[in-house]
Design a protein around this nucleic acid. Sequence first.
DNA 1: GTCTATACAACGATAGAC
DNA 2: GTCTATCGTTGTATAGAC
Lengths: 202, 202
Amino acid sequence: MTSSPVARGPYAKGVARKREILGIALALLANDGLRRSTLDEIAQRAGVSRQGLLHYFGSREGLLIAVLEARDADDIAAAAGASRPAESMADALERMLLRTTESPGLTRLYTTLAAEATDPDHFAHAFFRDRYRRVRTMIRDGVRGEQAAGRVDESVDPEAASYQILAVLDGLQLQWLLDPRLDTRLSMRAAVEALLPAGPGA
Amino acid sequence: MTSSPVARGPYAKGVARKREILGIALALLANDGLRRSTLDEIAQRAGVSRQGLLHYFGSREGLLIAVLEARDADDIAAAAGASRPAESMADALERMLLRTTESPGLTRLYTTLAAEATDPDHFAHAFFRDRYRRVRTMIRDGVRGEQAAGRVDESVDPEAASYQILAVLDGLQLQWLLDPRLDTRLSMRAAVEALLPAGPGA
DNA sequence: GTCTATACAACGATAGAC
DNA sequence: GTCTATCGTTGTATAGAC
């Protein structure tokens, strides 16, 4: 019995340290981008050696996955917590869009890694595959809710619409990153109105 | 006068060699991806030393730009050459989509670099900025043509529609790369029909 | 102009000492 | 569990031969 059965658990310090490093890594990735966020740079800002980092995350890729998952947990919490049952699809998407336009660096990180992870051999392939499925499910259920409330026509296929709406969302974000003069909210709202024609209760 | 004024020009050999290397680099990039396409690997397949490559392209980034521009020239030629004046927007987009689904590796390359190049400091930023502008202009003019022919309602704003249609195109391609079971043509056609409601002549 | 040889710096990964 | 030392790979810069 080398570890003491204290109340907080044996590895409390390590967990807190890991969480702290995660935040530092996220901030650097958002500000300086993927390429300039080297292990040395992250380690230096966190006050540990390069090998100290690898002790916690195994590899650079492991660190990146941890960052993505941590940020994703926040996103899901924000999406679930703030979404009201009666909220319209357009409003929900506008909130998502606002969240991404608030941090261009993070949006760029996700977009770039998603494109890379398209390769089945990429370390983040499973992550993004699952993530896209999850987001589409949320959109699909939202469309169904709109139809149940009579705000969207019954002729719309929620499954098909989820692919199209997510595509517009991603595509507009990319074009906005390339030229921030684009009004993504306006463009998104108009596209959703076209893709989800009003039902009898609208 | 050290250079001889021959018919083919003084640098015919170098130009041909450069073109040959470009093709080899493109093939490797499409097959093995950005990360595994190192200068050494490309040089070896081209039968030159690493420095032989750099003589022609200056740097790895210079080579990538050259590859992008060469491929882009082909794309434009294909788009312009095959497009008939009376061709519908949906058909034109379907051709573009078919071209990308024929070479997933190249599509992945473009998508990844476009996401990276979103950073104003990225070496390919100007390239993708111009490219997106050009593609949107083509789409916008296509929409205007459809309106002139009476196939698309006059209430549609061609400029706004060009952003949305390009977004759907990019977004669906990304989702297809992540899971090729997606029928991008079907999904694209449905989205375009929604975004471009039929006019009186349809 | 075309191309090779050598050297260098930065990154990530690994092994082993404390 | 943390650090020191070391290695392989990649991209880049310089000098110079043909």
